[in-house]
Amino acid sequence: MPNTVDGIAFAILAISMVGGALGMVSSRNIVHAALWLLEVSVAAAGLYYLLDADFIALVQLLVYAGAVVVLTVFTVMITLRRREDAVRPVDFSWPALLLALALGGILLAAAANFPKKTISMPDAMPSIVRFGELLFTARGYALAFEIASVLLTVALLAAVWWSREVED
């Protein structure tokens, strides 16, 4: 396999990601929006695979396509009293569109003027073994990993605490 990203595969994934994102913000049904988010997550995993980051693609599928979207759909189901509540009026706002266009213009200009033209990918990629060593040894990111696990524990406790039943 040559060390380049295939344009056709990239085009398919990019179009499905942008289309899914547009579908997500323009969908009137909130459940459909959650499914569009799922589609964007899966396409992002495909993009990571295209970039030789198999492990990140796997984690993306597990965390985003699995956990995050399921959690979102659960919340949608709990916060809707009737089936008809899922269909919402279109939330269109000019200020938001202007903000997004301005920000997008700046980002696109910055990306288009990126100084180094890099088409071909360099050869060396760390194996999953080396990545594990980087992540779990003290010379690498072991401390950050432990802090991340503390963060997840705190977030778990907070989520359980906040979503408990209240009497009023």
């Binding site: 380049t4 990203v5 295939d6 344009g7 056709i8 990239f10 990019a14 990601m17 942008v18 994102a21 547009l22 997500m24 913000v25 964007v40 993009l47 970039l51 939330d91 269109f92 706002s93 200020p95 938001a96 569109l97 903000l99 997004a100 266009l101 920000l103 997008g104 980002l107 696109l108 910055a110 990306a111 288009a112 990126f114 180094k116 033209k117 890099t118 088409i119 071909s120």
Partner: peptide, 26 residues
């Protein structure tokens, strides 16, 4: 056809702007 880093940057800029629009307007 081969694509480079810039294509990924452009894609991610577009996605980011769509996300900003949704986060502000919804």
């Amino acid at each position: 056809m081969r694509v480079g880093l810039e294509a990924f940057l452009l894609l991610s800029a577009v996605l980011f702007s769509i996300g900003v629009y949704g986060a502000v307007s919804k």
